[in-house]
């Protein structure tokens, strides 16, 4: 069975493309597909508890797995205890583990 890995590197407040890709991730989640969204680089601005990112919360509610690169957190001074609901801290090892499965459809934005 396929799983989807969306690696989102863009600040969702600046890049409309980020919202478009996350909307596709949400639609796939609603279709009961296995979806992981991995926030990296400036995509990490989406994960603070106070960040207003409705589509992030919708993805969480729809059952998507939400992860953030711990390096991106530390680089931006984002504390692990200040993350929005459902956000897990991971790293490139976790991304590689997902990529190592031929059933993963990986999309970098």
């Amino acid at each position: 069975m396929s799983q989807y890995l969306f690696i989102e590197s863009q600040d969702p407040f600046e890049d409309k493309g980020a919202e478009a890709y996350l909307a596709t991730a949400l639609e796939l989640s609603k279709r009961n597909e296995s979806v992981t969204v991995f926030f990296v680089e400036n995509g990490a601005h989406a994960v603070r508890n106070g960040a207003q990112v409705p589509i992030r919360d919708a993805l969480h509610s729809a059952g998507a797995r939400l992860k953030v690169d711990g390096f991106a957190l530390r680089e931006r001074g984002i504390k692990a205890d200040g993350l929005a609901a459902g956000i897990e801290v991971g790293g490139v090892d976790d991304m590689v583990d997902l990529l190592a499965s031929p059933d993963t459809k990986a999309i970098w934005h």
Binding site: S9, V40, E41, G91, V92, D93, M95, V96, L99, A100
Partner: peptide, 14 residues
């Protein structure tokens, strides 16, 4: 861009 850094980190991890 940060993409270079992340790409090199991914390559090393793999």
């Amino acid at each position: 861009t940060a993409r270079v850094t992340t790409a090199l980190r991914l390559i090393e991890a793999a």
